[in-house]
Write a protein that binds this DNA or RNA. Structure first.
Lengths: 223, 223
DNA sequence: CGATGACTTGAACGCCATCAATCGCTGTGG
DNA sequence: CCACAGCGATTGATGGCGTTCAAGTCATCG
């Protein structure tokens, strides 16, 4: 492993914010590429690094012994993940598509954090953001029906990765289903339903490029 | 409000750990009592205090506009809640039964935290514990069936509030249902099912005192 | 005692899962 | 170039789990 690592302390960070401001503080930062569907780290493994998505997309999931899967979050360009405070990762993280990730040694992060209060608060703040997202997802999984879930998903994705009203999903219907606690068939039916209602339109043939025609309508379906 | 407040800076804390060690650091600590089903704070309200349950039980929930409710967590004796990093509470908190709560002004906490690294790390650690619990709950709500959910609930409650193998639930079947993303009827049927299977037994007539006969069996049902 | 609230149990329904067929696109090899 | 396999996605048919609606029990309390 780490055959293609790429020390970065001299380079300018490609993304600002979040971890971008750390590279100037003697924290070793490297970049690494993961192929589609390859594992970045596994649940239960020691949490040695902190990660930031540079390009691509990552899914974090838990598995039951019989294969049932729950995706806790998708991490898109700029997002930080692997932010565990304990010794071990609580999720498995995989690249959804070919993905470039920036790695930070937790050890060196902890060292700097000991003397850098702003950094501690930054980490606390990112953890809290994380918590907020998961708390909202609890309500979705516990109490929303399938159409509400898919509408909420589209609103979230529109906010996070839209380019001019067009949402280009990096993940499959199965990934979406495992994020929303549904089956891929139900997700597909909900997409068709929302298209029939005039809230969205598919572009191209891939079924992954979606033109959002009525964002407020989708938000209203979500409740 | 605050008619029965009770300054506590001179008293010994009744519970150790978590916030118990803060009372000796010039942080104003008061206790307050809430009656059964009364609101402690509401979603969206400014987060002025941090709370610790001294006696009783608290539920944190979110509501949809049509009344559907999702309980994110139950807070039992010793637990800290209201740990928001933002300005506002993200849940509504209510007393499940008559409950005594210790309040800490977030403002004074922040003041001390600025110069006390151990305290910041403590807060970060509590936030991470919180996150871990919610992440596990995602898997439950997204992918487990009703019997698995109820078994998991009993295992959790056995761990958190058992006295000699007897679990005395402070919350109603409806509260449990809204925690597990089910209806109260389904929860009731699952209890009956687990009793029939010999995993538990009801004591008294209240249906809230439960003798756990086979904890490993319950854990196995949960998977 | 009648009223109320918490819980259980039964019956019927409905939403989503499951099973299955089909379509379109991509890549591969004869 | 076309046949064909493989994958992702859609769509249809059927079934099951949990919800909904309803009745009934039991304990508490006015």
């Amino acid at each position: 492993m780490f055959t293609n690592l790429n020390t970065d302390s001299s380079k300018r960070p490609r993304l600002l914010g979040e971890l971008g401001d750390l590279s100037c503080k003697q924290i070793s930062v490297v970049e690494f590429k993961y192929g589609r569907n390859s594992e970045i780290f596994g649940e239960g493994e020691p949490a040695e690094f902190l990660y930031q998505v540079i390009k691509g997309a990552v899914r974090s999931h838990k598995l039951l012994s019989d294969g049932r899967r729950q995706i806790g979050a998708f991490h898109l360009a700029g997002d930080v993940f692997g932010l565990e405070n304990g010794e071990h990762h609580r999720f498995t993280a995989e690249a959804v598509v070919d993905t470039t990730v920036r790695l930070l040694k937790r050890q060196s992060l902890d060292r700097v954090a000991k003397s850098d209060k702003a950094l501690i608060f930054k980490i606390l703040s990112m953890t809290t953001d994380n918590l907020q997202h998961v708390e909202n997802h609890l309500l979705l999984l516990g109490r929303k029906d399938s159409l509400e879930r898919v509408a909420a998903f589209l609103v979230e994705m529109d906010r996070r990765l839209t380019a001019a009203g067009v949402v280009t999903l990096p993940m499959s219907r199965r990934d979406i289903a495992d994020y929303l606690g549904l089956t891929l068939e139900t997700v597909s039916r909900a997409f068709s339903n929302l298209q029939k209602k005039g809230f969205l339109k598919f572009l191209g043939q891939t079924q992954r490029e979606i033109l959002i025609l009525n964002l407020a309508g989708l938000a209203a379906v979500d409740r």
